[in-house]
Design a protein around this nucleic acid. Structure first.
Lengths: 346, 346
DNA sequence: CTGAAAGCGCTTACAG
DNA sequence: CTGAAAGCGCTTACAG
């Protein structure tokens, strides 16, 4: 706490003498209660009063003080949204979905980035609580389930990419494994048998599941698994570039590469390009997530799509339900393969 | 107001009976004032009391109620951040910078998207006020200066991409025109004389300035301006694709295209690719903003760089100063041209 | 150094 | 339908 205080900017002269409900009440010749009722539409108010109060409100462009309202109401109409990095195109998509839905309901989103590590995620969650959010949306994240449940005791949380039952909790699993098999079956169906896989960061659950899908599809097609065709990435283009470069240098032949996500595929594209290899003529590439920019890569990327935007919308829908004491009734969006120009028949 | 109410999710049972300062006070055998003082480090408190209060706080994992605090303090430690679209890689970069700086100061960011139109921007600004933010950061935006100043009466605002003096206002201009001339001089220096320009959406100030830079550089080099080489885009890849396609169909010869931003260039890349034209062999392309992904396009894109991330950090720095009643002392980051592989000597 | 009291601005039972 | 009063949980002069 002490530390926190030191970090905070100094108070400074507080401003906003502003106008209050009392001012409006006085001006309109009514009580503050009446003003409040009119603003909130809580109770019927006679038309005469209503008109004069509304006039006064308009005249001063009065807006109720948020904190006061929050205190009286016990809710702030704010939702905390945890992603791993606000500048990742993947999460940005999701945030967009969240925003749209939340705004329509009169809520605002407080966002913070977990940076793919537990400590930061934990810090964000505390911050959310400290800021009095009414609910929290977590996009995946590496926080242990138990920790999530702990936070859920203070305010409801919906989390994607997991299966986490609970009274104040709702989860929206991501179909990672299924998506990965879709990608692989496509490649296998095209005649590819030497298929490399550029993985995500080690312990991430989504990464593990996508790898599992890769393995499963191989087995299903009775293609022997060659560990030398699996390289570790970092979910980013850079990791894809490095991993693919290493793969190329290792000299192990392959005709296709399946990337744990689209950004990794962008890196793979560049590695291939530098070697003078063409996609898809020399090697086919498939990504995962179908980011908007994947329609614009050269060539446009074949990718597994489970709309993150829709996922975000549903997550928002769910948290709104939870906040209002209802049980959410939403599902994860469907997964499908979007075939573009980065894959070809062998 | 009525409308707003209808949109809001129904209240639902409010939860969080939670523990309050009084509970902590009682448990530690002190007054609420003392608890508050210890939490805030406002005043010296004897060690004995401090220890027992801290023990009680830890025991219950007590966190002060945000709204109550906000009401008493007159500040919420929340900053509204307006961008045009949270899922635009350009703004995402900026938000990242904002986030980093704000978090370090104990503030949280409320984000909303203006969608490149005045009505939405206005709505966002009102929302920010309604949510009681302590300050607002506007990433460019099309709101009239007068309107911005109006909002600044209620809470300080820092705005990028403009020059807007004022007591409760701080601006961080973007060197659009200079950046554009940098790009153009590079192209001209390479021997290009028929240089197309894919513009941004019409009235956007950044768009206008970049166009002005294009014109200025042309004039400087005594290259006649050909309006048929200017196409309107929408700041997005799609607009770049459409505009470039039209340009190609118009049949007006050109050897280079300068795009109002990188995303537009991505669209241009695809249009060229579809026509079987190679970058930079057949046409050179330059973007603006130097998004992280521009290192990964094929070929990597030459672009004007004025770090949006740093811009975000500085904007955050500035709003923090304003909120504390200090005058900000920050400047826009420098502009430079990053030459990659998308341009070549004619 | 510490406590009792008042106040931040709104909402909402409780009367009428 | 409307008002006076109490209360939301915290902070901060004001006394001591």
């Amino acid at each position: 706490m002490k530390q926190r205080r030191e970090q905070q900017a100094k108070p400074g002269p507080r401003s906003r003498p502003a106008v209050t409900v009392r001012d409006i009440a006085r001006e309109a010749g009514v009580s503050a209660s009446t003003v409040s009722r009119i603003i909130n539409g809580t109770v019927k108010v006679s038309n005469g009063l209503k008109a004069s109060v509304e006039a006064a409100i308009a005249k001063h462009d009065f807006r109720p003080h948020a904190a006061a309202r929050g205190l009286a109401l016990g809710r702030t109409f704010t939702i905390g949204v945890l992603s791993q990095a606000i500048d990742s195109p993947f999460y940005a998509e999701g945030l967009r979905g969240v925003e749209r839905r939340l705004l329509a309901a009169g809520y605002a989103a407080l966002f913070m980035s977990g940076n793919w590590n537990v400590a930061d995620e934990e810090r964000c969650m505390r911050r959310f609580i400290d800021h009095g959010v009414d609910g929290i949306i977590m996009f995946s994240g590496c926080l242990a389930n138990a920790a999530v449940k702990d936070f859920a005791k203070r305010c409801p949380v919906v989390v994607t990419g997991r299966d986490l039952p609970g009274r104040h909790t709702y989860s929206l699993p991501i179909k990672d494994r299924l998506g990965a098999t879709l990608a692989m079956r496509h490649l296998i169906g095209l005649g590819h048998r030497h298929i490399a896989f550029i993985a995500g960061s080690e312990s991430h659950p989504d990464a593990l599941e996508r790898l599992a899908g890769y393995l499963e599809a191989l087995q299903e097609a009775r293609i022997p698994f060659d560990p030398r065709l699996v390289m570790r990435g970092d979910w980013q283009a850079q990791g894809g570039l490095i991993a693919t470069t290493e793969l190329l240098e290792a000299g192990r032949p392959f005709s296709a590469v399946f990337c744990v996500n689209d950004q990794t595929a962008y890196g793979a594209y560049l590695a291939l390009f530098r070697r003078g290899l063409k996609v898809p003529d020399d090697v086919s590439v498939v990504g995962f997530d179908d980011l908007p920019s994947s329609s614009y890569t050269l060539p446009p990327l074949t990718s597994v799509r489970q709309s993150v935007r829709v996922l975000g919308e549903r997550a928002a829908e769910a948290i709104l339900a939870l906040v209002c004491g209802r049980r959410p009734q939403v599902e994860s969006p469907p997964v499908e393969l979007v075939v573009r120009a980065s894959t070809r028949q062998l």
